[in-house]
Amino acid sequence: MITLPSAADKQSNKELLTLEEVAEIFRVPPATVRKWRSNREGPLGFRVGKYVRFRRSQVDKFIADMEERQREVDGL
């Protein structure tokens, strides 16, 4: 019997982003995201076999953290 994915399953799959999708979000080359990972500077990612995936929530957190750091530097 074949089971079709539920709406929750589809949403869960959308939550996981590829390295290329993360690069698109930041409008940087994929190599930049790879460098962030190797330097432990970017959003938290994890391996699924040989593939790297990022949770959308971790990408959003990274963006919020970057914004906060910039406000502190700017004295706002």
Rank of each mutant, 00 (worst) to 15 (best):
I2M: 11
I2G: 08
I2L: 13
T3E: 12
T3V: 13
T3P: 14
T3I: 09
L4R: 13
S6W: 11
A7P: 11
A8Q: 14
A8F: 05
A8G: 07
D9C: 08
D9F: 12
D9A: 12
Q11Y: 05
Q11P: 04
S12R: 14
N13Y: 15
N13Q: 14
N13R: 13
K14Y: 15
K14H: 14
L16V: 14
L17K: 05
L17E: 06
E20F: 12
E20W: 14
E20R: 13
E20M: 12
V22L: 06
V22A: 03
V22P: 07
E24R: 10
I25Y: 13
I25S: 02
F26V: 00
F26C: 02
R27F: 01
P29D: 11
P30A: 03
P30E: 04
P30H: 00
A31R: 08
A31D: 02
A31C: 00
T32I: 09
V33T: 06
R34Y: 05
R34C: 03
K35R: 15
W36V: 09
W36A: 07
W36G: 04
S38F: 10
N39T: 06
N39I: 01
N39C: 07
N39H: 14
N39M: 11
R40N: 13
R40P: 02
E41C: 01
E41Q: 12
P43L: 00
P43K: 14
P43W: 06
L44V: 13
G45D: 00
G45Q: 04
F46A: 03
R47E: 10
V48C: 05
V48A: 06
G49W: 08
K50M: 01
Y51E: 10
V52I: 08
V52E: 12
R53K: 02
R53V: 01
R53D: 02
R56F: 03
S57C: 10
Q58C: 07
Q58P: 09
Q58N: 13
D60C: 03
K61P: 01
K61R: 05
F62H: 12
F62D: 07
I63E: 01
A64S: 03
D65R: 08
D65H: 08
M66Q: 15
M66E: 14
E67D: 07
E67K: 13
R69P: 10
Q70I: 10
E72T: 00
V73C: 09
V73G: 04
V73L: 13
D74V: 09
D74H: 15
G75H: 02
L76Q: 05
